[in-house]
Write a protein that binds this DNA or RNA. Structure first.
Lengths: 135, 135
DNA sequence: TGATAGTATGAACGAGTATTCAGGCGAACC
DNA sequence: GGTTCGCCTGAATACTCGTTCATACTATCA
């Protein structure tokens, strides 16, 4: 659960920095906003979907081409696009028996651009590949 | 050449827009880069972790305060911080028996800022709240 | 009309993951 | 020293989610 409803389990009366805690609770977005934002990030959290979206950055593509370009099965691509479609991240245009998809969410496009830009000028994302600890 | 594991299942010889498909395959980041990027987004894809990171945007906080500010159990917070720590997203500073955490990844901070900024000027994230299809 | 290509869907399986509970460890305080 | 406090960890549970296989649907073509 990610409810705000329940009061913190402990350490309630002895906050170290009560002011900031209070400020944070004030500024924290609503549950709904947080959930929706997490959902958006979740859509980008799968390598397959990420590839599809990156492919679509340059313009629309049909399912067939998307599968070929991203090295995925057409069924898998279709399932992924269904999800992205349900969240209004991509938009479909049907032409004959083909379906052309394109990015439909400026927000997601910005997130993608930011992520790719970061990949560029730091080939060292320095992602601790599953090593524990922190020195 | 940065090939994907499996060759496309079908529709290989009859690409609709072979040029763009080829271009996409050229520009597509490496498998490793895609996976790492997806991992980063995955860290932001959980409401609980998202709250913690938003709370840390203003500066460091101890586990106790984080739990109180975000309405989570201290155990849950600790587990989440462990993950974020392993990925170098947060950094810890120990003082006595307390542990103060703070954001350590400029990239993630930018992603958070972008997401929050988007929440501001569009209270209508217009996220199809689990409605299927548009057909 | 029948056949085929492109896409979509549903079910099933397996893998990964969040949450909870119980306990453990080190630092401060008496 | 013993105790409390703050934080960490491991195990167990339940759950979500991606992938695959089989099948269905719709539009084009012969």
């Amino acid at each position: 659960m990610n409810e705000y409803s329940g009061e913190p389990a402990a350490c309630v009366d002895r906050l170290v920095d009560a002011d900031r805690v209070h400020a944070v609770r004030q500024q924290m977005p609503t549950d709904r906003a947080v959930d929706e934002t997490a959902d958006v990030f979740g859509l980008l959290a799968d390598p397959g979907r990420l590839r599809l979206l990156v492919a679509l950055l340059g313009g629309e593509l049909c399912v067939c081409d998307l599968a070929a370009a991203c090295g995925q099965s057409e069924s898998g691509v279709s399932h992924a696009l269904r999800l992205l479609r349900a969240h209004r991240v991509v938009q479909v245009r049907r032409q004959g028996r083909r379906a052309f998809y394109r990015l439909a969410d400026a927000h997601v496009r910005m997130l993608l651009d930011l992520a790719l830009a970061h990949l560029d000028h730091t080939s060292s994302l320095r992602l601790a590949t599953h090593r524990e600890q922190d020195r």
